[in-house]
Design a binder for these strands. Structure first.
Lengths: 120, 120
DNA sequence: AAGCATGGTGAATAATTTATCACCAGATGA
DNA sequence: TCATCTGGTGATAAATTATTCACCATGCTT
């Protein structure tokens, strides 16, 4: 992280939500973890396009913000599992709703941006 | 806009939603417009921190994506009003939910980032 | 003519986020 | 010893987004 030029407005729910969840992979990460994929290695494999480093960073931010927690099992090879905190779980209905909305909007957006109908 | 390096995944609702709504001011803008603030000048005044240029850009993106529409009244001085399309309106419950969640999470985030309780 | 209000745009830059690359460490098996 | 698996980090580059600044135009008022 770094020092933001414009600080978070704690009075504004949208500002707060954007701070903790408004980045490229976070919704996706929370979604996958809620589905049972908990290990970093598995998440890298499950999520198309994310890299190890980026995953680590976003996981650690989610952990810092209290949406994720992790457990380290002293096995060999080392096993680490991330899981949702209550705050993280409280976000699931929202993530689901956003996903639903996006699915419904996809064909419209495709027409707008590419000028053709989708076959979905 | 520009040509994205990584294209939108139309199969993924989260990806689609992030594309049209995942930027700093869009939730806020849709929220204000739904509350009846429709003119660019009024939006600049209503939203703390946004500038004229940024407002114009985000409004035009929302318009391009089909969440907003605008009407030009040939008055003097010129009057322009933006309003929500049905797609834009379908987003309102979600924005409200995100805002609610953020409000509920604010005090926790404040403790985490600043180490002190809020007085809200 | 000058100043103001409206809505708008292009170019350049700053700020921020994401990605790439090269590493480290522990323990295991070949 | 060397390669492999795991999870992890620092430095840097690239991509993306947001902001600043300087403009344009119209038609009013002074």
């Amino acid at each position: 992280m770094y020092q933001r030029k414009i600080p978070i407005d704690y009075e504004c729910g949208l500002s707060v939500a954007m701070e903790v969840v408004g980045s490229k992979w976070k919704f996706c990460l929370l979604d996958e973890i809620s589905k049972g994929i908990k290990r970093p290695r598995d998440l890298v494999n499950a999520i198309n396009g994310i890299t190890k480093r980026v995953l680590q960073k976003q996981l650690s931010e989610l952990e810092l913000h209290g949406l994720l927690s992790k457990t380290i099992y002293p096995e060999v090879p080392l096993r680490v599992e991330y899981f949702l905190t209550p705050s993280g779980e409280s976000l699931l209905p929202l993530i689901s709703a956003v996903d639903q909305w996006g699915m419904g909007f996809a064909s419209q957006l495709k027409v707008i941006l590419e000028g053709k109908d989708s076959e979905i």
